[in-house]
Design a protein around this nucleic acid. Structure first.
Lengths: 220, 220
DNA sequence: AATTCATTCAATGAAGTTTTTGAATGTACC
DNA sequence: GGTACATTCAAAAACTTCATTGAATGAATT
């Protein structure tokens, strides 16, 4: 927190905020919270962080004004604050895709390999949902689906996909999505379903970006 | 640089990039470079950093893919890489304005106090330039003006404003701009000129944002 | 009132960042 | 070829961040 005129002060505040985003675990916590509110326990499990460690990262996000917690019985339930949080992380992601060579490598060797087809964008998806020419598949855990999903989507948790595969139509294109652009759940769904002869594409983003761009979401 | 599946890898790369943005001096270096390329000496002077320290921050920006240096005689001249760098910092700034209480305080006590009029936005500015109903004043140092400025702007370095004040019309509204939204130069210009009876407003952003939004800039 | 459970807090050590200093590099000028 | 200059590099000191541990809090259950 240096200071030397109000401009330097402002830059140091912007930097403090960037520092809070400057940790992979915290970015993952934000991604999870962008699906919907969660108690610390679930966040700790889904990120693989120890309980105390998850709690401390959440404190930092809270101090930065990015999340709030409320008590509900024995649990503290965290949720994302209002504000352009998803937008900022999307900007960071696009900057990394454009300027960081290592990111381009991972995309090329890992993600493009799994899904060599162009993913479908939000405008296209909306058109095709309207004409009913596509089945939209949400492969996130049930609780995240219930908190918010793209209207008209069918929820099958990736865990259950193999056993519930009969619920999917073979004669219609399927579009799979999950938590965000690099959420592996939808990549794995595409892989599994293609192997069984389904026509599947990925949606280019996840639920948080869909909502951040002002489109309607459904609950329950 | 943790790793546990490609998604965690990606998040750790995004976090590394955020970490590089997580230092006020580096944000200031980026702002200066967003005006145009500069040798290390000038960057070190304008930021108040020691030579070696400025150099080391520039190395970090280079490793992150945000700047490049080229040799020109005895100097190494740095410039911003292509890519959505200004956009990302703008997103960070807006997030801070929205979610960080301390930022709101500084804006209220420092900036709003200096200029209680609404600043003019880019679309309005363009309209008013076309109809010739406004004089646009660029108060950055001459070298930054020469590298790139908003077409039609008059350059008077803030340092020289008092002595060259006669060049400004008293019967027309003046709009002042400089390096960015919180660049103090334009605030000080507004203060000085209002005290002399000129009608002055600030432009809401600076040159980098103007260019990043795809508008034409002039050189020389 | 005692116990359990979810969470936070405080303290520790290990690892990383920032700044300063002085030496090293590489280009230009005499 | 030697000297001056701009910049980078390497090492050290001061400080910050991260994960782990165990104790503390505070609501719910018995």
């Amino acid at each position: 927190m240096s200071s030397d005129g109000p401009k330097r002060l402002m830059f140091s505040y912007f930097a403090d905020l960037a520092k809070v985003l400057g940790n992979g675990h915290r970015l993952e916590l934000i991604e999870l919270l962008a699906q919907g509110e969660q108690p610390v326990e679930v966040l700790s499990q889904r990120t693989g962080l120890s309980f105390a460690n998850a709690s401390q990262h959440l404190q930092q996000l809270r101090k930065a004004g990015l999340v709030v917690g409320r008590r509900s019985g024995k649990n503290i339930i965290y949720r994302l604050e209002d504000g352009p949080i998803v937008e900022t992380i999307t900007a960071l992601r696009k900057l990394a895709e454009h300027n960081v060579a290592a990111v381009q490598d991972v995309v090329a060797t890992y993600f493009d390999q799994l899904d060599n087809l162009d993913p479908i964008g939000p405008d296209d998806l909306m058109d095709r949902m309207r004409t009913g020419s596509v089945t939209l598949l949400d492969v996130r855990p049930e609780d995240e689906f219930r908190a918010a999903h793209i209207p008209g989507a069918l929820n099958i948790d990736l865990q259950a996909l193999e056993s519930r595969i009969a619920e999917l139509p073979m004669d219609m294109e399927i579009v799979a999505y999950c938590r965000g652009a690099y959420c592996v759940l939808s990549f794995q769904a595409v892989k599994l379903l293609r192997a069984r002869g389904y026509r599947v594409t990925r949606f280019s983003e996840g639920l948080p970006e869909w909502r951040a761009s002002g489109r309607a979401v459904a609950t329950a």
